[in-house]
Design a protein around this nucleic acid. Structure first.
Lengths: 192, 192
DNA sequence: ACCTGAACACCGTTCAAGT
DNA sequence: ACCTGAACACCGTTCAAGT
């Protein structure tokens, strides 16, 4: 049987809130707009998320969870290194192509000063998930490289993609610009 | 003789506003706080900058101007390529080390949806200044490379630095993290 | 449990009024 | 020219009151 209505509303709030933050940012997110979008008053939104920070924490936590599953899924078919890296870059590209959305955590990185500690913990966890995954992928390519070297490169790749996405976001979600950056990353061996 | 008081107030507003946006973002910038910081009421701030967007445009425009001068200044002594790139990366590092500030335009890239066209034009001009300068630097190294290849690499370097800075910003302005990313960029030949 | 309206101190903006 | 207070519709948040 289907879940109660309260879960639907909570779920609807999170969906709208996530895409809104990805498009416009945490500070541009309004509880009144959020309520209107899901058909309740802003005071009802507070019933599910007592404060805006609580909502941000829930969004960041689930976003990290989803990426952990998604990234592991990419490894299932044991694809080649270059295909894996292209698939990873494609994730960032898809956000831009769909209403000029950027990574939720990329946006939160910029707005970090507005976000309290529990949200920051999720932001760091998200980065950890990405760096761990990229380190794993790089290790197959460079089995004799030191863990520190692999991790540094993984972190650099993560940052480079966040940067390519945010700069492209500033240019109206220009996917052609994004593609050129990715090609240049590949040409410089940053991805290999 | 010294300039009139109106210039001092206008100048003070811009200085405080610039660092505030670099630290907290455009959407976190308040005309009331701004007035309090410079000793006037918020309605007086509107006398110098009719709207918040006008202030943002003035900030972005001057920021682009300042970088144009600063970057050209780096070429004056005709330093070696590697030194130039390290000097370029050091600019981003300095912001992080000073109250976890990020590039004004990097922050505006994230908050682009809150910014009207005149501000976006300055954001694009700023990116143009950086890409043009980086292309020039890269051309000395690769005199036979095509303009398109050089520009693509220059754009990728610009985005990679923006990303390294924003991710480090999310980690409390962690300059050690930033340095590791830069080292990985250098190791992968992204900067050469 | 879920929702609401009213209140509070905030926000950008406008404007008539001061000097 | 420069500054102000008051008003407007917004904002997150709280809370007593409903069902």
């Amino acid at each position: 049987m289907a879940s109660g209505k309260q879960i639907d509303v909570r779920e609807a709030i999170m969906k709208v809130a996530c895409t809104t933050v990805q498009m416009h940012g945490y500070n541009a997110l309004s509880f009144r707009d959020l309520g209107e979008a899901v058909g309740v008053k802003s005071s009802s939104v507070h019933h599910y998320f007592p404060t805006k920070a609580d909502l941000a924490e829930a969004l960041a936590s689930r976003y990290a969870d989803d990426f952990e599953v998604m990234l592991d899924g990419l490894l299932k078919d044991e694809p080649e290194h270059d295909e894996l890296m292209k698939a990873y870059a494609a994730i960032y590209r898809e956000g831009l192509a769909d209403n000029n959305r950027i990574c939720l955590i990329g946006m939160m990185n910029a707005e970090i000063s507005s976000l309290p500690q529990p949200v920051r913990a999720q932001i760091e966890r998200f980065a950890g998930v990405h760096v761990k995954w990229l380190t794993k992928v790089l290790k197959y390519r460079h089995p004799r490289a030191t863990p520190a070297t692999l991790k540094a490169k993984a972190t650099a790749i993560y940052a480079a993609l966040q940067g390519a996405q945010i700069v492209s976001h500033g240019f109206g979600g220009d996917t052609k610009l994004f593609d050129k950056m990715i090609d240049a990353y590949i040409a410089s061996d940053l991805f290999s």
